[in-house]
């Protein structure tokens, strides 16, 4: 154990600490008392307030994806399949992963910075002194909010991306909305939608728990706050890809 390089040692140490932190979340999250009003506030701040950014990126990616696919699809003479292909791409992968990454960028950093600054200004210690459980109040509510809001954001982002794709399709072609819509859904199955939807809970949880962890254990003053914000985005983004990798393997097992 002691012979391992310092980098690996610190990586393993952090992994262990995050795991313990997550365990603590489950332990405290499902035992009273519940900070319901703070949870709702976090849902509003983390979920609803992220919608414009997520919606805009989803719309653009839907539009761009359709336009980018068109030359290749035309080359093979299957441009009629663009709606089906865009639909599969959005529902299965682009919708969830893009929303999660944008969410990680916006929310992961804000949670890390917020909790980090609370930590360095000793607000967390003050909460403990005042009898409030800071873990319940800060970590559980935020993590639960990200876990539940990201799937909703993803579904809305999918819908917006489809609208973008519809517009992208109609730049070069004329396709009625109901036909476009039908073409998208005719090619989809539950196996395309459900695993993609389920994995967004994990993405949300990863963003929330890593953001909280990084913020909750910030030290070294204001410099530490910046570091916490930065590393929470980096680590949660990497986690999103790792979870996606595992999720695709599992979904693939069901598809066979």
């Amino acid at each position: 154990m002691m012979n391992l390089p310092v980098g690996i040692q610190s990586f393993l140490k952090e992994t262990g600490e995050i795991s313990r932190f997550s365990w603590r979340f489950f332990k405290e999250g499902f035992s009273p008392r519940f900070e319901l009003s703070e949870f709702i506030r976090q849902c509003f701040v983390l979920g609803y307030k992220s919608l414009p950014l997520v919606g805009l990126t989803a719309f653009i990616i839907g539009l761009v994806l359709t336009m980018q696919l068109r030359p290749t699809m035309e080359y093979y003479g299957v441009e009629v399949q663009i709606p089906a292909m865009v639909g599969v791409a959005i529902f299965r992968e682009i919708g969830p992963i893009l929303t999660a990454l944008i969410f990680a960028g916006k929310i992961g950093s804000s949670i890390g910075a917020e909790l980090g600054s609370m930590k360095v200004t000793e607000q967390i210690d003050a909460m403990e002194v005042s009898g409030t459980n800071p873990f319940k109040y800060l970590v559980v509510t935020r993590t639960l909010a990200t876990t539940l809001m990201l799937p909703i954001l993803t579904i809305i982002a999918d819908a917006i991306a489809l609208i973008g794709a519809y517009l992208g399709e109609n730049i070069y072609d004329t396709l009625p909305f109901n036909l476009f819509f039908r073409k998208v859904f005719l090619n989809l199955a539950y196996i395309d939608l459900i695993p993609a939807f389920i994995k967004t809970f994990f993405f949300g949880f990863a963003v929330g728990i890593i953001g909280c962890f990084k913020g909750y254990f910030t030290d070294k003053g204001t410099e530490g706050v910046g570091k916490a914000a930065n590393s929470s985005v980096v680590v949660s983004s990497v986690m999103i890809f790792l979870i996606d990798l595992v999720a695709v393997q599992i979904a693939d097992l069901f598809q066979r």
Partner: peptide
């Protein structure tokens, strides 16, 4: 917030 959550669930 309700409208947002509802929109997601409805979709």
């Amino acid at each position: 917030l309700g409208a947002f959550v509802l929109a997601g669930i409805v979709l």
